[in-house]
C-alpha cells in the first residue's frame, strides 16, 4: 500500500503544482506510515520528485500521451493506483486534472473530494477540509470508500522540501483505441505568459477601465510583475478581453499570492472566485466599492493615474532588487 500522486508536466518538465501535490502526498504518507509513488507522463526529470518526499516514480514514456487526453491519462493513473494498491490518490486542481479526476474516481469506485485545503484532519475515519460554496465556506468531508481521491486546491498547501531518493521505474499502462475516442485536434494557447492557474501574481481589470483600448497599462503592469492578466465577467462578456481571462464564481478561480484588482467593484460573485488569493490589492475611485472590505491593501484613486505610477515605481524597485 502506498499513496499515489499524479504529477503534471508540460513539455517534459514538471509544473509547479506537481511539487505541491507531491509535498501534500508526503504529508498524507507520513500520517499513514507509508510511502509516496508518483505517476508522471513523458518527463525528463522524474527523479527531482525525490526532493518533495516521493520515493518511487512510475514514469510513462509514450508518444501517444504527449498531448493531454483525459480518458487515457485517467486510465493510466487508475492502473498505476491498482498496481501500487494505493489507498489514497492525490491530484491537483488544474483544468486538465479536474477533467480526469472523476474518471479515475469512477474507475476505482473511490470517493473524490476536490478543493482540499489542508492535510487530512484524521485518517480513521478519513476526513479532509475543503472549500464549498465557492470559497464562502469550508466543509469537513469524510470519505467512506476504500480508495480515496483528493484534489488539492492550487497554492493552498504549498511546496515543502522533504528530501529522499526517488527510484524511477518505467511504466507502460495498457491502453486501447477506445481511450482515445475523444481527440484533441487543435490547441490554442498563450505561450510565454503566466496563466491564471499557475501565476504567483494576477493583475485583473474591470469595467472601471472603460474600454479594451486601455488594457495596455494592465499588460505592462503584469509584465513588470511576471503576472497573469485577468478580468471581471462583464469585461469578457463585452468582448474587451478573452473569455479565458474571466475570473470569479462562474469563471476561473484565482488562488495566487497576490491579486491586484483595478477598476473592479467587488461583486459577491467576483470575490467568491478570487478570495483564496493570499494578498489582495484594490485600486478604485470609489471608496465605497465593496472590494475595499475584502482586500488587504487599497488605493482610492483613478486607475489612469495610479497604474502608470505603480508601473514606474515597480520598475525602479525591480532595478534595485535585481
Amino acid at each position: 500500500m502506498s499513496i499515489l500522486v499524479y504529477t503534471e508536466s508540460e513539455n517534459g518538465k514538471f509544473k509547479k503544482n506537481a511539487f505541491e501535490v507531491a509535498s501534500y502526498a508526503s504529508a498524507v504518507a507520513k500520517q499513514l506510515g507509508t510511502t509516496v509513488t508518483a505517476v508522471a507522463f513523458n518527463t525528463s526529470d522524474a527523479s527531482s520528485l525525490g526532493d518533495y518526499g516521493v520515493s518511487k516514480v512510475l514514469n510513462i514514456t509514450n508518444d501517444n500521451l504527449k498531448t493531454f487526453n483525459a480518458k487515457a491519462f485517467a486510465n493510466a493513473i487508475s492502473e498505476a493506483a491498482n498496481k501500487e494498491t494505493a489507498k489514497v490518490v492525490v491530484l491537483s486542481s488544474s483544468a486538465d486534472t479536474k477533467f480526469l479526476a472523476p474518471i479515475v474516481a469512477s474507475t476505482l469506485k473511490a470517493g473524490y473530494v476536490p478543493n482540499v485545503v489542508s492535510a487530512p484532519e484524521s485518517t480513521s475515519p478519513f476526513v479532509v477540509k475543503r472549500t464549498v460554496f465557492s470559497n464562502k465556506g469550508f466543509a469537513q468531508t469524510q470519505i467512506n470508500s476504500e480508495v480515496k481521491i483528493l484534489g488539492v486546491s492550487n497554492n493552498s498547501y504549498g511546496i515543502h522540501e522533504n528530501s529522499t531518493t526517488a527510484a524511477v521505474e518505467n511504466f507502460s499502462p495498457s491502453l486501447s483505441d477506445s481511450d482515445f475516442s475523444v481527440k484533441s485536434v487543435e490547441i490554442d494557447k498563450v505561450v510565454g505568459k503566466a496563466t491564471i492557474a499557475d501565476a504567483d501574481i494576477v493583475v485583473s481589470g474591470g469595467r472601471g477601465l472603460k474600454g479594451p483600448e486601455n488594457w495596455g497599462m494592465i499588460e505592462e503592469l503584469a509584465d513588470v510583475l511576471g503576472a497573469a492578466t485577468a478580468c471581471s465577467k462583464p469585461v469578457s462578456d463585452m468582448g474587451w478581453r478573452p473569455h479565458g481571462e474571466h475570473v470569479g464564481q462562474t469563471g476561473k478561480p484565482v488562488a495566487s499570492n497576490l491579486y491586484i484588482a483595478i477598476g473592479i467593484s467587488g461583486a459577491i460573485q467576483h470575490l467568491a472566485g478570487v478570495s483564496s488569493s493570499k494578498v489582495k490589492v484594490v485600486i478604485n475611485t470609489d471608496p465605497e466599492a465593496p472590494f475595499f472590505k475584502a482586500a488587504d491593501y487599497g488605493i482610492v484613486g483613478d486607475a489612469f493615474e495610479v497604474v502608470p505610477q505603480l508601473i514606474e515605481k515597480l520598475k525602479e524597485f525591480k532595478a534595485q532588487n535585481a
Binding site: A105, K109, A110, G111, Y112, V113, V127, V132, N135, K136, G137, F138, A139, Q140, T141, Q142, I143, N144, S145, L258, S275, V279, V281, V282, F292, K293, A294, A295, D296, Y297, G298, I299, V300, G301, V306, Q309, L310, K313, L314, F317
Partner: peptide
C-alpha cells in the same frame, strides 16, 4: 462515497490598509 460532517465559515477579514501613494504600496507589498 462521501459525507460532509461539519461546516465552517471563513475567518473574518482584518481591516484593509489604505495608502495614498504607490511608494507606500510597493513598500508594504
Amino acid at each position: 462515497a462521501t459525507e460532509d460532517t461539519k461546516f465552517e465559515k471563513p475567518a473574518a477579514k482584518g481591516a484593509i490598509k489604505l495608502v495614498d501613494n504607490v511608494d507606500e504600496l510597493v513598500n508594504l507589498l
